[in-house]
Structures are given as C-alpha cells and as structure tokens.
Design a protein around this nucleic acid. Structure first.
Lengths: 230, 230
DNA sequence: ACCTCTCAGGTTGTCTGAGGAGTTGTCGTG
DNA sequence: CACGACAACTCCTCAGACAACCTGAGAGGT
C-alpha cells in the first residue's frame, strides 16, 4: 500500500506491487509457474481482469512471461528497471528525504567550491523564483527546483548533478500536488523567500555550515508536510 | 491496421508493439494524451480489454501513465537509459564523493532509527569484515561494502537503500583497484578496523553527530587517496 | 466583468460471464 | 512399451455493465 502517497492507487497497481514483492522475495524463483489467474484473483481479493492487467504490467517490466495454455512464468526476480521508474513507484516522502540528505551535503560542497559564475547563476535563479511568485503553482515549483538545481550544480560534481536531475520529475510531481493540496501559497505567494535568500547568501560567503543548516531546516519543514499529507 | 494478418503472437502483444512504435515515432509526444480506450479499440480492431492490457504493458515499461478520469499520458518515448552505465563512465572519485555525501547523512538517520535487528546486523557485518582480513583484497572490499550497506539499510528508507545499491558495483571496482595499487593492506591486513568499530558503536548509541563525523573522516581519507591515485 | 458552483459528458477502473485456443498429463489400446 | 484420443487445465479475447473520477462549459451570483 501507500503507493501513490498523495492519491489513492488503483487496485491494479496494488496487485502488481504485491506480486512484484513476492517475486522479489523469492516466493516464486525464476522459471517457476505462477498460480492461475483465478487463483491469484481469489488470493489477492480482486477480479480476474485486474489480475491480468497487473500481470501485463509485470510482463512489460520484463519480470514475467505468459504462455497461452501453459501459464505465467517468472523470467527475472530483480526488476532490472531504470532508476527513474523506480522513483516513480516510491513514496514521495521517501524520495524527498533522500533529496534532502543529498542536497544538504551538496550545499556544503557548493559553499566551498562556488565560482563567480555560480554566484551569478544563483542570484538569477533567486530572482526568477521571486518573479514566479506571480505565476501558477506549477511554474513556481519549477522556479524553486531550478534554484536548488543551481546550488547542486555549484558543487561541481557531475555525478551529483545527474543524480539530482533524476529526482526532479518525481519531486516536481509531489511538490505541485502538495502546494495545491495544502494551499501553501494562500497567504504568501512567495513562501520561503527569506530562507532561500539567506541560503544563497551563505553559499556566496562560503559558509558551509550555515548553508547546510538553513537548507536542512527549510527542507525538513516541507518533508514534515509531505509526511502528514501522505 | 494489419493486425489480424499474422496471428502468431497474442493480440495484446501486437497492439502494444503497434502503440510503442507510434510513440517512438513521435506521433504522441511526451505529455500528450492518447486517444481513449474505446477509440483505440476501434482503430486497432481489438476489444477494449485487449487495449487496456496493452496499455498496462507499456505502463509497466515506463512509457505511459494512466490517470483515472483524465486519460492515458505519454511520459517517455523510449525506455530510459541505464543509471548504472552512467556511473561506469563517471570518474571514481566523483562517484565516491557522492557516496560519501549520501552515506554520511544516511548514518545520521540510521543513528536515530536503528532497530535492535539493525544493531545485530551491524555487529555481524563488522565481525565479517574482521574475518575477511585473512582473505584477498576483493573479498575484504566486499565485506567492507557490506558493512556500509548495513548502515544505509538501518536508515529505513527504501529509496536510499536502492540508491546505495546502485553505487556498489562502481565502488567495488574502484576500491579493489585502489587497494591493489597502493598496497593498502601491506602493513595492516584489516585497515580501518578501529574507526569502523567506533562508527558502529556511535550508531548503536544513537549518536547521530558522532556517527556522521567518524564516517566522514574515514571516507574523506579514502577519497583523498582516490584523487591522488587518479 | 469576474468569480464560484453545478453538472453533464467523457475517461479510466473494476467486475462478471462467456467462449476460443493452446498445452499438458492421463489413460486406454495396440 | 509406444502411441493416439481425450479431458482438464491454462491463457486469450470479447462484450457488457456499473463505479469512480476528471474536465470543461454554462448557470448563477457578486
């Protein structure tokens, strides 16, 4: 359960996830036949067509293979999936927590390594975030993420930059839903402006501890909201 | 559509393949909505259930995403590229640095969240690392990584655990090469035993700051060696 | 003119029932 | 023992019905 976190997940996804876990746990090793559709339907407590669609999803992911007349066979226990779709399945709060861990440390690095160009880019991103205060939630979230991406870029580690980029789609999705759900911008259309400015300032001064602290406080607040919303 | 022509493969697979090709050709760019299931059923000449299963297969592969009441949306035109292969192209020092950032924060989380089972696993991993001191470099590196993986697992965040697992192959490769190159185990076959023990102890005591500090010092030392060796 | 609310139409989600097509193991016969 | 018929399973496909949900247009009030 708790698949979508912010929205109820369809039975098909729950069934697919349940089967995926049981396969990952080794309940049905590679090469073995899964129970029949009608059996699985009774076991999982859903209709037969739902089971079929769940099995199709697993087949699309390369986990199982159906042979007409014979049955459905396990062809891989490890998802062998790409990281982006793994993130899509994970709870938003878990993704956000990891993002927080990564970015807080990235900010400390950025405070030590930022170049004059980085500082210029940071100020531009901060201004863009302010300008986006007039726009819709999605545009504001985009501007916010762009600022954080600029910080990560200032750490000058290509692996770190790519890693953060992987998180962006899922983060964007979750944050837009959160802002909309809690109506975060009802009172202030530009929430967090002060902390973000202080944060950019700390990076510019080369204050690693300060930048990490301010960012952690800011992100932990949002993480708490995500946890309560989920 | 010439779907009925070759009846070798099931209709579902043919329909999924047909849709996959049209998506790859750019007929429906990323973000656009696919025609409705009933429409697709008529154009493809199959029943609605068949279309649904074909769409599920594409969803399992991460190409489309269905939203109840709204439609089925394209989220990728081709299966996303592999993150592991990207890590393989990156410099070992960059990968190791990111690993350090992630794991230091993971250790702080672990100190707050570790269960009695986690503590047991940590002690077992520490003992296994000591036992591996008698073995070859590769086996010792494996035991070392296993201990660090146990710490990350104690943070109880599935995304974090998976993320660390992504790093393991590249880390292992780089560390084995480093140990061999610098002959790190020439004097002491069990280097870092004292710091690792202190580190496990800090996690057990719930000392987040201490665990983070000890781990960071340990990892930074190796990172420095990697930078000089590279 | 603007905003809010309601509602109808369209969309995916889920279940049921029915029959078709293929595979596999059993059993009787030679 | 060899072999063919057969029954019992399996997945495949379709049709229909209803529920849950989203979206945009229009009514109504401010």
């Amino acid at each position: 359960m708790a698949l979508g976190a912010l929205h109820r997940s369809p039975l098909v996804d729950q069934a697919a996830e349940s089967l995926r876990e049981q396969i990952a746990e080794g309940l049905w090793p590679v090469g073995t036949r899964l129970p029949g559709e009608t059996t699985l339907a009774k076991t999982l407590g859903v209709g037969r067509s739902t089971v079929r669609e769940a099995l199709r999803a697993l087949a699309g992911a390369g986990l199982v293979q159906a042979r007409q007349g014979a049955g459905v066979f396990v062809i891989a226990t490890s998802p062998a999936e790409d990281w982006t779709s793994r993130l899509r399945r994970a709870a938003v709060a878990d993704v956000y927590e990891v993002r927080m861990l990564v970015e807080v440390q990235a900010a400390r690095l950025a405070a030590r390594r930022r170049t004059p160009d980085d500082v210029t880019a940071l100020h531009a991103a901060l201004e863009a975030r302010r300008a986006a205060a007039r726009d819709g939630d999605a545009a504001f979230v985009d501007a916010d993420i762009a600022l954080h991406a600029a910080v990560v870029a200032a750490a000058h580690n290509p692996v770190l930059t790519d890693l953060f980029a992987e998180f962006v789609p899922r983060l964007r999705e979750g944050l837009v839903a959160l802002v909309d759900l809690l109506d975060l911008r009802a009172g202030d259309p530009n929430p967090g402006d002060h902390t973000h400015a202080a944060f950019v300032d700390a990076v510019e001064r080369g204050d690693a501890d300060g930048a990490g602290r301010v960012l952690q406080e800011e992100l932990e607040q949002t993480l708490g909201r995500l946890r309560r919303a989920g």
